[in-house]
Deep mutational scan, measured.
Amino acid sequence: ATNIVSKVKWYNSTKNFGFIEQDNGGKDVFVHKSAVDAAGLHSLEEGQDVIFDLEEKQGKAYAVNLRIK
C-alpha cells in the first residue's frame, strides 16, 4: 500500500524505532530510524501526522518512504 496517512503512536529515538497507528484499525506499523533518516528527520513525535508506504518483509509490516503530512 502507498501514501497511507496516519499518526505516530510512539517513537523512541534512543532505541531507534517506533510504531505508527493504522487508521483502518489494522496492526501498528513498525518504523525504523533508517526510514526517519531517509525522510531527513531527526525523530518523530507522538501524534505526528505522517504519510508512508507499507512494505512487508518476512511477514512484518514496515513503514518506508516516510514523510510529514
Rank of each mutant, 00 (worst) to 15 (best):
F30K: 02
K27F: 10
Q48N: 06
D23Q: 15
Q58K: 12
H42Y: 12
K15M: 14
R67M: 05
N3E: 07
A61E: 11
G59I: 01
G26Y: 10
E46V: 14
A38N: 08
D28V: 05
S34R: 10
D28L: 07
K7D: 01
N12D: 11
E56V: 15
E21N: 11
K15E: 04
I68P: 08
N16C: 13
V50L: 10
Y11S: 00
A38V: 08
I68A: 09
L44M: 05
A39H: 03
S13G: 10
Y11G: 00
G40M: 07
I4W: 07
K9L: 07
I51P: 00
E55I: 14
F52P: 00
F17S: 01
K9V: 05
Y11C: 03
S34G: 08
K15H: 07
A1F: 12
N65H: 08
K69R: 12
L44P: 01
E21Q: 14
Y62H: 09
V29I: 13
K69Q: 12
S6F: 06
T14S: 13
Q58M: 13
S43D: 11
T2M: 12
K15N: 06
K27P: 14
E45A: 12
A1V: 12
V36Q: 00
Y62E: 06
V64N: 05
E55A: 12
F19G: 01
F30C: 04
Y62S: 08
S34V: 09
Q22G: 15
F30Y: 07
I68S: 08
F17C: 04
L66V: 08
D37P: 02
Q48H: 06
H42C: 14
T14L: 13
G26P: 08
N24A: 11
E45R: 14
F52M: 04
V5F: 11
N65K: 06
L66Y: 00
G47H: 07
W10N: 01
G18C: 03
Q58A: 13
E56G: 07
F52S: 02
Y11R: 00
N24L: 10
F52E: 00
A1W: 11
L41N: 03
K27N: 10
I68F: 10
V8T: 03
T14I: 13
V29K: 02
E46G: 13
T2C: 13
E56C: 14
G26S: 10
A38Q: 10
S34E: 06
G40W: 05
E21C: 15
K27W: 09
Q58W: 14
S13L: 11
F17W: 08
D37R: 14
Q22N: 14
D23H: 14
I51S: 06
A63Q: 02
D49M: 15
V31D: 00
K9P: 00
H42V: 13
N3P: 07
G47A: 06
Q48M: 13
G47L: 04
A61C: 13
I51T: 10
E46T: 15
L54T: 05
V64R: 07
W10D: 00
L54P: 00
V36S: 01
N65G: 03
L41Y: 10
Y11A: 00
E56L: 14
G47Q: 06
G25V: 07
V8R: 01
V8E: 00
N24C: 11
K57N: 11
A35T: 09
S13N: 11
F30R: 02
K27S: 10
I51Q: 08
S6L: 05
R67F: 05
G26Q: 12
K15I: 11
A35E: 10
L54A: 03
A63C: 05
E56T: 14
I20F: 09
V5M: 12
T2N: 10
V29D: 00
N24R: 11
V36I: 11
G47D: 05
Y11M: 02
L41A: 08
G18M: 02
D53M: 04
F17V: 02
G40C: 09
I68D: 06
D37H: 14
K33A: 10
F19M: 05
A39S: 10
K7P: 03
L66F: 00
G47N: 07
N3I: 06
N16V: 03
L44S: 00
F52Q: 01
I68Y: 07
R67E: 04
L54E: 03
G18S: 01
I51W: 08
I4K: 09
A38H: 08
K15Y: 11
R67C: 05
D28G: 07
G18E: 00
A35K: 04
K7F: 07
D53I: 04
D23P: 15
G18P: 02
Y62M: 09
N65E: 03
G26D: 10
S13P: 14
L54C: 07
K57C: 13
A1E: 10
N12W: 09
L41W: 11
Y11I: 01
K27T: 09
K60F: 11
G26N: 10
K9C: 05
N12S: 14
G40F: 06
S13E: 10
D23V: 15
G40T: 04
Y62C: 08
Q48G: 04
I20R: 00
L41H: 07
H42I: 12
S13A: 13
E55F: 14
N12Y: 06
Q58R: 12
Q22T: 13
E21F: 15
V36M: 08
F52L: 03
D28I: 05
K33S: 08
G26M: 11
E45F: 15
V36A: 03
D49H: 14
G40K: 08
A1Q: 13
A38E: 09
N3R: 08
A61N: 10
K7M: 05
V8F: 02
S34H: 09
I4E: 04
F17Q: 02
N65D: 02
K9D: 00
D37E: 14
Q58D: 15
N65A: 04
V64A: 07
K9Y: 03
G18T: 03
E21I: 15
K27V: 10
H32I: 03
A39D: 01
I4H: 07
A39E: 01
V36K: 03
A38G: 07
Q58G: 14
